[in-house]
Design a protein around this nucleic acid. Structure first.
Lengths: 341, 341
DNA sequence: TTGTAAGCGTTATCAT
DNA sequence: ATGATAACGCTTACAA
């Protein structure tokens, strides 16, 4: 069965397709009467607009592309939902892609979005990404790009980031206040802005308190597995009584390693994670962590993109917006008195 | 800057757009020489095909739509990844939508996909969905729909489901073998196929063992919160020494309620969950659960859709494929001797 | 307020 | 093997 088009509606009503188009678009240059007649007939015939044709004609679609490393991370999935909350009411659809932390998949995803003539792109980089050439193509084709969380200045357009520095600073300061003195750090690749900033906050808190910063920093220790291994290595290499982990999965791995070595948390070792993954609240001991405001971040990101699409807002400018974070103190970092290991 | 089109390539090469189109499409009716020249020039000019125009002309896009209740559930996010693994190499892109468990959002998502003229739709229903009218529209427009996990026979097309019956049966049988005798059940809405089947498996195992089935079944207890509340209610209403929960989140809630009431798992109470959420392996005690094979399910679903798109495979037929599940026995369900509560 | 007509970039049919 | 041309369904100057 052929699909209903505006031509069918036009013929049924004895008007022209342009009139139907205008009526359906809510254009003011059409009488209220015909507009109602058109809408009624459209409903009657089960008309579904062909957005593909409209996109071709206008040279732009109502679809926004979003590329994230993984959709099943608590933080990312919440940003996605928040972005939807803003974009859908504004008449945009979201095309979600995963880069699976691979630079080439990220590039491919952006190319696919560009080929689909999306109105704009929202993106958080894969860990590996170092070549930002695709984004020049986006700029050339006037497709606005808004980066969030994992951002890079090599890409033009607004950047919405978490206050990673303060989050780390607060976390480490809290450990210090709780009496821990030798604080190690598990983090990701320091070429990623997010981990760089958390590392800066960590160092700053230690320096401020006059504590040693040679207590062990392990890069590329952000999964449960690498967190586990790195903790075991650290235990052999150096002495420490607390750990600030740049992610909750790493913190889980660390807690397991400590458990296997007979070190109890928080009495022998304090731990603070980052991201407030759902599980962090119901493991034992409950994990102290830094909560990022995924909701605000999603809203701000989506709004920035809409502004960019509408030609408002400084697209080229190096414009950065920082979303505050919050330290959640739970059981894994609280003890009455610190005992050096 | 204007985008490069096949017309630009054609002019630069002194051929017609048709030739360029054929060359780019790998059509055999073009000389190998011109095909190479075209490809070279396309690369040189940074040509990106306009898939929107192609979709309009062909009346069909290379985009497949996927609608899931939530993207951040372990099971769903893994099915999505598995679907991508099959679809992307086959030249399809995935448009992911969330229904957030709302029937109206599910309907809206399907309409959006239809308006975007997707090649096909992969879908798992929201809990609330009872009206399947939109899918008639899909059928009318010859857009194949493949359902997975949460399926309904009111929708035409292949259905890929988990062996929920066996999973539940194995789980409960295992509890019985471990010495538990009065087994309660926390589940979701029994109007959803998934929970219906798990309930059937639960009952079957009990009946087979000659155990009472009046030990308490709580519907709509599938989140951590409702799992917690329902467990507290059950403890007041009836006596039981084990629980089979139709989801891991409910199991977590149940464990918390038991903990608050001073009942220890697994000695006083055995627990088995469903879904193998990542946290279930690192809570204490480690949660026994039923693992669904999200990977196989995604692969089968994607392949079924590709078959349907290519016109092969019985689209109308009530064709159902069952994916086996696996019981993971961990600590929450193992005790040496059963003690009635 | 409505109609006319061109065009978005591609593909498919027919002709050469 | 290649070219000419129409068509996909819609939007939008421009005309009336």
């Amino acid at each position: 069965m052929k699909r209903t088009t505006i031509i069918d509606i036009a013929e049924a009503l004895g008007v022209t397709p342009s009139t139907v188009s205008r009526a359906l678009a809510g254009n003011s240059r059409v009488s209220e009467q015909t507009r109602d007649r058109v809408r009624e007939k459209a409903l009657e015939l089960g008309y579904q607009p062909n957005v593909v044709a409209a996109a071709l004609r206008r040279g732009k679609s109502d679809t926004v592309g979003m590329v994230v490393p993984r959709i099943n991370r608590h933080f990312f999935s919440h940003v996605i939902s928040a972005v939807e909350e803003v974009l859908n009411p504004a008449g945009f659809n979201l095309l979600i892609c995963q880069s699976h932390e691979k630079a080439d998949l990220e590039k491919l995803a952006v190319q696919v979005l560009l080929k689909n003539r999306v109105a704009g792109i929202i993106l958080s980089h894969a860990l590996e990404t170092v070549d930002f050439g695709v984004f020049d193509a986006a700029a050339r084709e006037r497709v606005p790009v808004v980066q969030f969380d994992r951002v890079h200045t090599a890409v033009a357009g607004p950047r919405i980031i978490n206050d990673n520095f303060s989050g780390a600073y607060l976390a480490v300061k809290h450990l210090i206040k709780s009496g821990y003195k030798r604080i190690a750090h598990l983090t990701g690749s320091l070429s990623v802005n997010v981990y760089q900033e958390r590392y800066r906050g960590y160092k700053y808190a230690l320096e401020e308190a006059g504590l040693p910063i040679d207590t062990g920093v392990m890069e590329n220790s952000i999964t449960r597995e690498t967190g586990y291994e790195s903790t075991l290595s650290l235990l052999q290499q150096t002495r420490f009584d607390a750990m600030f982990c740049a992610g909750d999965f790493a913190a889980i791995g660390a807690m397991q390693a400590l458990h296997d070595k007979g070190l109890s948390v928080p009495s022998a070792m304090g731990i603070v994670g980052f991201a407030n993954e759902p599980f962090s609240d119901f493991i034992s001991p409950r994990l102290s962590t830094v909560e990022q405001n995924a909701h605000d971040m999603g809203h701000l990101t989506a709004k920035a993109l809409i502004r960019a699409i509408n030609g408002k807002g400084p697209l080229e400018a190096d414009w950065e917006e920082v979303v505050p974070v919050r330290l959640l103190v739970r059981d894994s970092s609280m003890r009455s008195e610190a005992v050096a290991y």
